[in-house]
Design a protein around this nucleic acid. Structure first.
Lengths: 345, 345
DNA sequence: CCCATCACGCGAACCGGTTCGACGACCGGA
DNA sequence: TCCGGTCGTCGAACCGGTTCGCGTGATGGG
């Protein structure tokens, strides 16, 4: 069922069939209809590999996701879903590539073997050899997140620094003086994950600026780790009255840890952070948080990539998002707790 | 940077390079090393489209996911992740296809245009035209889930009937007499989703068998819907003492609804169901549930598909899983509550 | 009436691999 | 010395599209 077969049955040449389909050259109404009838009869569809070979475009974009491998967070699901849908709207397929265990290998598959026209990278690190590599090759790619030197690159990112700082200021305004930061796992921090680093920076600086007592913690991407993390926090400083987190997978565990410690949210303890709305709403009380607009970011990334593919020489474009904090029920004014606090301020 | 270039620089013919790479015909050590050196120098990788065109295999499998479009649940993420990783182990890439808005179109893209060698389907319906279509075409596919007549097909599935029944029996053994079932959204039920239907069946039959008073509810795939659903349940029958759910996205909302109604889990009210462990652990108290082994199912689906691809005439294989109920903290013995109960039994 | 123009369609080359048949060199045995 | 068989390599055809240059018949203006 190839184009030659169609041509034969329609009594025309292969090239005429091709032109009738692509419209790149005029074809008389009569022949076009004749061809179309044959195509409809046989249910013909042009072979994607042959087309890709001939015109050098695969109509596929690669989605390179976490070197994390073991654990996926809900945010990533939203990214994937929105990227796939946005890509479909532009007639692109999405090829998933785990840069997991053997990141080079799958990278070579995507780029070296020309399986994709362009790529979207998730889970960016401040120093990211994947990004360096792509820039060096001038390969059309868009990052979800940005490296330490993001100037000349294409990306859509979240201003984690500002968002974490906003959370701190919000808590400080409520009167909290002793707060904690619950970050992603140490492994990711060591690897240089940008959200973990920029969030930590924003938190630390804002806390210093407001003269708060602040501690920072790493926490595994799961509920039990979150619970354990709260135990550490309250052990290290029982007077802590609030926490900020980027770790949505640990959120349920954080709440459980607080409940077990007898801290009522938000009466005794406030929780906030940077989390996708869907997940902020699963906990009780619902989390006051800067909502990660994951779906929007995925869509934007595709739009940028399509622009880059259509205009290979276009100047780099970026989108830095900083969603506002959505007020829900997990934060409240700080009250003096325990014997140590009255003396402060 | 194509095979001809390599051949020229190594001073051999294109076919010799091809054989040196594939090993399908003997090549002298000397020539092979010479070729390999050139390849390493230039960083050559064979073009995937050309190769696919020539040998008819794309080394790509399609992952067809939900017509749900708007909402993704955590389970799906686990499926996707495990499928991608398992596929990578067999040297397959994964092409994501949203059978969302326009299921036919993307289906045609995958199969008609020969973008993939085989496919894995998620979110199966009891009557599923996608599956019928694939079977009719004898296209190599494996379903995660099964249709109403699954005999001759390839699939890995979860025994939702048995699992939902096991939850009912477990609750009945604890003394619960009035229970509710929280299903997926009505839209999915109407569409014929197998998990929703088989789960509902198992629940209903087991409840009848045990002589329980049982009500069933549809519930949106999000926390607010879960909360509203609990309100409906307690409004319809305030003496309800337990619920069974398949709806992991609503889980957090179910807990919130119970908390707002003043029901303490598990003292006043037991909750159980069929939910992936990761999500069962995010709520407090952690959910006693049959853990959906999503990662295992994804892996199995890939293994079955690879077998089917390697042996086109192999007889269909299936895997029906029925994980045991993991005891956590969300269930307990039933006590007489409210004025209406004492008369029962 | 003749030639320039145009619309339409054809054939061939090409994209970059794989694979098959053939061929020359070299070997050992008769 | 000649012959048969292996081993290693080559050239050509093929996979199924796209695209370029050209030919042809119809059309119309001078």
């Amino acid at each position: 069922m190839n184009i030659g077969e169609i041509a034969k049955r329609a009594g025309v040449s292969r090239s005429t069939v091709s032109y009738a389909l692509s419209g790149k050259r005029p074809v008389s109404d009569e022949t076009r209809e004749k061809i179309q009838r044959v195509i409809d009869d046989l249910g013909y569809r042009p072979n994607a590999s042959a087309r890709a070979l001939a015109n050098g475009r695969t109509s596929t974009i690669g989605l390179v996701f976490p070197p994390a491998g073991d654990h996926y967070t809900g945010m990533q699901l939203d990214f994937i879903g929105s990227v796939v849908e946005a890509a479909a709207a532009y007639d692109y397929d999405v090829l998933l590539s785990p840069s997991g265990v053997d990141s080079d290998r799958s990278f070579q598959r995507l780029l070296g073997e020309r399986r994709v026209d362009g790529a979207i990278l998730m889970e960016i690190r401040l120093q990211d050899d994947r990004v360096d590599h792509l820039i060096a090759e001038n390969f059309p790619a868009v990052c979800i997140g940005r490296t330490a030197q993001p100037e000349g690159d294409w990306w859509v990112g979240l201003d984690h620094t500002a968002l974490a700082a906003a959370c701190v200021h919000y808590l400080a305004d409520l009167g909290h003086r002793r707060i904690a930061f619950v970050n992603r796992p140490e492994r990711l921090l060591r690897a240089g994950y940008e959200s973990a680093h920029r969030g930590l920076d924003g938190f630390t600086k804002a806390a210093a600026e407001r003269g708060l007592t602040a501690r920072t913690y790493d926490c595994g991407d799961d509920a039990p780790s979150g619970q354990a993390c709260v135990e550490r926090i309250l052990h290290d400083d029982p007077d802590t009255t609030a926490l900020v987190t980027l770790n949505e997978a640990a959120l349920g565990g954080l709440y459980r840890g607080l409940a077990h410690a007898g801290r009522h949210v938000p009466r005794d303890f406030s929780v906030t952070g940077v989390v996708a709305a869907r997940w902020a709403e699963t906990v009780t009380p619902q989390l006051t948080a800067a909502d990660v607009p994951a779906a929007q970011m995925g869509r934007l990334a595709v739009e940028l990539l399509v622009e880059r593919l259509d205009h290979p020489d276009a100047p780099p474009r970026q989108q830095l998002l900083a969603p506002p904090i959505s007020l829900r029920g997990s934060t409240g004014p700080a009250y003096a707790v325990g014997p140590a606090s009255p003396g402060s301020a």
